[in-house]
Amino acid sequence: MKILVPVKRVIDYNVKVRVKPDQTGVELANVKMAMNPFDEIAVEQALRIKEAGGADEVVAVSIGPSQNQETIRTALAMGADRGIHIETPHDIEPLAVAKLLKAVVDKETPGLVLLGKQAIDDDSNQTGQMLSALLGWSQGTFASALELAGDTAKVTREVDGGLEHIEVKMPAIVTVDLRLNEPRYASLPNIMKAKKKPLDSLAVADLGVDITPRLTIAKVEEPAARAAGIKVADVAELVGKLKNEAKVI
């Protein structure tokens, strides 16, 4: 079985994001970029399945500008076997991403697609579910445990009330949550090896997908800042303030 892992290049999660003064978006120039943290978890899970004998190939795919090839190389350095890059001039919407991924799935026929549950830039939490719909496959979203069992997979999902266990028919789409695993670091020798692994490019036009945006972003603004607070000396003062000043208890 082949596992496909879509990986997105996003602003590193440690970076404090700044809105551009002209309100057209956020500052991306000279900002540290990294693989979406959820996608690292997805790559790790794919590798563990392969190492346990449950898959024979792990393919990482990324959609975006040419720099996304670095993100694919990161996946290859972690242990993925090959990469596919679909070049678009800028980030595109989840529906368009899902359509391009469907085209890749049609070509590659993986038995499992592992995605992150959400990209930490757009915070959309859509792509996996959309891809699943377009393929007519099953979906196990927000997975904190995954067990493959022949033509089904057991998925433990993190839901608002706690955990939910479901069974999905293979081939399946699984989107991963934070507690599924702890992703490995790429070692230096593996980073060197990754440079030689195959990385193919596909063109949007060849895949026959219309990526025209459906939504318009009128503006991007900074959220209102909170007024500065005070330090209290002790618990008695704290409780006094909460009772008499803030009047919340």
Partner: peptide
């Protein structure tokens, strides 16, 4: 978006 560090006004 971006963990609430920015707010986008979006039209559909």
């Amino acid at each position: 978006i971006y963990a609430g560090n920015a707010l986008a006004t979006v039209s559909s």
